[in-house]
Design a protein around this nucleic acid. Sequence first.
DNA 1: CGCGTCATTGAAGCATCTCAAATGCGGTGG
DNA 2: CCACCGCATTTGAGATGCTTCAATGACGCG
Lengths: 257, 257
Amino acid sequence: MPIRPSDLDRVKALPLFAQASDELFRDMLGGGFLQKFPAGTTLLTEGDPVDFLYILLEGAVELEGTWNDKATTLAVLKPVSAFILAAVVLDSNGLMSAHTLESSQILMVSGEALRRAMMRDARFCFTVAQELAGCYRGVVRALKNQKLRGGMERLANYLISQQARCGGGETFALPHEKRVLASLLGMTPENLSRAFASLGDYGVSVSGPNVTIHRPVVLQRLAKPDALIDQAGPTGDTPASAAELERWTPEPARAVS
Amino acid sequence: MPIRPSDLDRVKALPLFAQASDELFRDMLGGGFLQKFPAGTTLLTEGDPVDFLYILLEGAVELEGTWNDKATTLAVLKPVSAFILAAVVLDSNGLMSAHTLESSQILMVSGEALRRAMMRDARFCFTVAQELAGCYRGVVRALKNQKLRGGMERLANYLISQQARCGGGETFALPHEKRVLASLLGMTPENLSRAFASLGDYGVSVSGPNVTIHRPVVLQRLAKPDALIDQAGPTGDTPASAAELERWTPEPARAVS
DNA sequence: CGCGTCATTGAAGCATCTCAAATGCGGTGG
DNA sequence: CCACCGCATTTGAGATGCTTCAATGACGCG
């Protein structure tokens, strides 16, 4: 499984690696694998030791946590994203399971090599710290989202974010199964259905995976999007969702309040 | 406001600074203040730029997030803890407000100086990355706690953690006002009261701030503590709570599953 | 002593979950 | 091409948990 140059370029385009020297970059990827996994493959199990940093190049990966036979989705990743960086930096075990939602191509980078590179190059180490800080802030947003908002409000804000991420047109597609979306938003599939139905009163119509927001202003009055919870503020510019953790890159210094 | 040597020692004992050279340490604290604040002082407001790393030496600080006129407590810090490290590393604005719960003594370290030190010393930078990774994992635990457990389960697990933190005796004291605890656990004060009352059936009695766990086994069967959510596993050894974010130091490699 | 805050208790309303059944859709095999 | 199957989604009804509003009791401080 040789790594294609075009894949290498995509990895190097990640903020995490963009500033690393070619030498450092080559060293790190020395002990790496590029692998394809079918949909539904479990990549990591909660509680197991983590030996590799995973980088998703194609497909989609779900991160989930479980307790007492219940499961909840903590994030859904799309390319290009690195995940479980925190466990790798601490050489610890994962707090969440990871499995593919679609057939996925994944680059696995040796955790050992990554930590060595960090110790060797302060600049790269700083970039990792920035990435981790960004991840941290992503989960803080998710926690605020969960504790401060109700189900319909979470859904409304998700739709507004997703719309921005899809280019801003009044109709766009949901990127995952509704069942996954429900778990991500912290509700049951039944409840998500009902929440979608209720949003009809706010000018939202749903047809399969396609959503149309007919009256954005009305929906926003319900959603009250917030720059400190949803990554894209009320004016909706920046992509990425509050819930899609880890995938977010260091924020611009002084983001809009 | 000169910094007393004894305070310096306490700061240097933080995992974050323990490995830094004396020179680096002195450089960083050059642009720092040591200040006392009365109870109820707002140190930081959500959304404002963050110019300093805060280190709590005495007292207690609450971190909270707000949305739509509702507020929720994200963490309660006790000495010695550094906070808002993530915002400092990204030179960004805070996602949460901070205010003192008691009269507190706080060391403020220049964010500029901290970032410079990181770029200069890969070893220190690595430690910061480890700290951030630990913080990240703390919030992930909190998010799982919030999404997967109900109110009584969260309280039961909190009590078990708190008991361990207080030395393991069957009677111990709650460290904060119940109103704050309720917000930390993601419920209303009324509901916390009822939850405490319900725990009577599980051998828990409450008298003011004092809690007694008469039948630990019964409570544990309800709580089902989990090493991947609560920092202390079922056997209860390590201190610190799932909800008290940021204050947690890098975990030992390979914590008990 | 009186005031204000915190904690507790009760009752009503709302949101969410669970269980159950019906609907709709895509894909397989005949 | 069509019938059938499996799965995701939807819908309904009842139970549960949580919130809100309101009132009372307990405590500490001026």
